[in-house]
């Protein structure tokens, strides 16, 4: 591993020697400091910064990966006028339905957890559990649960219904993916909200209790307003998640189908980049997605900050 080599060399000559003068020591400290950062810097510049610029370049070309022909904004113009991209973008918007569901459940759990009920430490670990699992594990699990011979269909048949083919119908497939999203997200977000609740000054509650405010009143007038910053943050990560992290779920559950009914932008990037001979449009779509996410983050940040003032 050349990386390890560099790390070793970076700090190979510290200390020792008779104590030098102040400025020489300062200079040597700067050298040591720089050498200590260097390996990480080289790797990040080489395998993150450079590829990002490379992706930007590819997005302006027509290329098979070997020869590059500059086409200017052509790829972008084509993407923005492509009806498929529009359809897929609307698919992404459909997944936004998961956000109120996730936040609602997370709020319930966090408010309940805040009561420090017995065994709350175990509850914390349980609610955290889906967060350590891969989207692949969760996706395949839900595909199984909603499969033709899965648990859900067993219950449906038990209740006298017909087996439902969840994954041959676009809307049903999206619904199952949304359920998977909710399942995997609400526990973790409940813990985030809980940390917001714990930051509220207990004196506020004591004052409210003295005023005779009931539990519901306190929830509505004290608890919720006091955690709006965390709520805003949770909202933002959910939106980002909807636009950038559905790939794993879509990949294992539907492969974007039926047709393009469950294809999301991040999955379309993968399709365009790895199943066509022209890589330019795939790169352009990835850049567009990145820019879109960036703008969204800035706007949402601003919106929640304005509420703060």
């Amino acid at each position: 591993m050349t990386l390890v080599h560099k790390a070793g060399a970076a700090a190979g000559h510290p200390a020792a020697a008779p104590r030098p003068r102040k400025s020489a020591m300062k200079r040597r400290e700067r050298t040591v400091g720089f050498l200590a950062v260097l390996p990480a810097l080289v790797v990040v510049v080489g395998f993150m910064l450079y590829p990002t610029l490379f992706a930007l370049y590819i997005s302006f070309t027509k290329t098979n990966g070997i020869s590059f022909k500059w086409v200017g904004l052509n790829n972008y113009v084509q993407l923005l006028t492509d009806p498929l991209v529009h359809t897929v973008f609307i698919n992404n918007l459909k997944f936004l339905v998961s956000i109120p569901l996730v936040i609602f459940l997370a709020l319930i759990v966090s408010v309940l957890m805040f009561e420090r009920i017995r065994g709350w430490k175990y509850f914390r670990v349980i609610f955290f559990l889906p967060n350590v699992l891969s989207a692949v594990v969760i996706g395949v699990m839900f595909k199984q649960l909603f499969g033709y011979y899965g648990v859900v269909n067993t219950i449906v048949v038990g209740l006298g219904g017909e087996r439902i083919e969840f994954f041959t119908n676009g809307s049903l497939a999206i619904m199952v993916i949304i359920l998977a999203l909710v399942w995997s997200g609400f526990g973790y977000q409940a813990l985030l909200l809980l940390s917001g609740l714990e930051a509220i000054d207990p004196a506020v509650y004591e004052a409210a209790a003295l005023d005779g405010a009931g539990w519901w009143k306190r929830l509505w007038y004290i608890t919720l307003p006091n955690i709006r910053r965390v709520l805003g943050f949770v909202f933002i990560i959910n939106v980002l998640y909807t636009f950038s992290s559905l790939f794993g779920f879509v990949f294992v559950m539907t492969a974007g189908g039926p047709g393009y009914d469950t294809t999301t932008i991040d999955y379309l990037v993968y399709l365009k980049a790895f199943s066509t001979s022209n890589l330019g449009p795939g790169a352009a779509l990835a850049v567009l997605l990145f820019v879109f996410i960036g703008i969204l983050t800035v706007l949402q940040n601003r919106a929640f900050r304005i509420q703060e003032d």
């Binding site: 700067r30 400091g33 510049v45 993150m48 910064l49 990002t52 950038s244 993968y270 997605l289 996410i293």
Partner: peptide, 30 residues
């Protein structure tokens, strides 16, 4: 430690943190 250009280095690390895999995968593959 007094690292020369520390602000710039930290800044660039923070800014590339948000770059998604979809952007990187194609150039990295090439």
């Amino acid at each position: 430690l007094p690292v020369p250009g520390a602000k710039l280095i930290t800044g660039s690390f923070v800014s590339v943190m948000l770059i998604p895999g979809q952007v990187l995968i194609l150039p990295i593959y090439l």
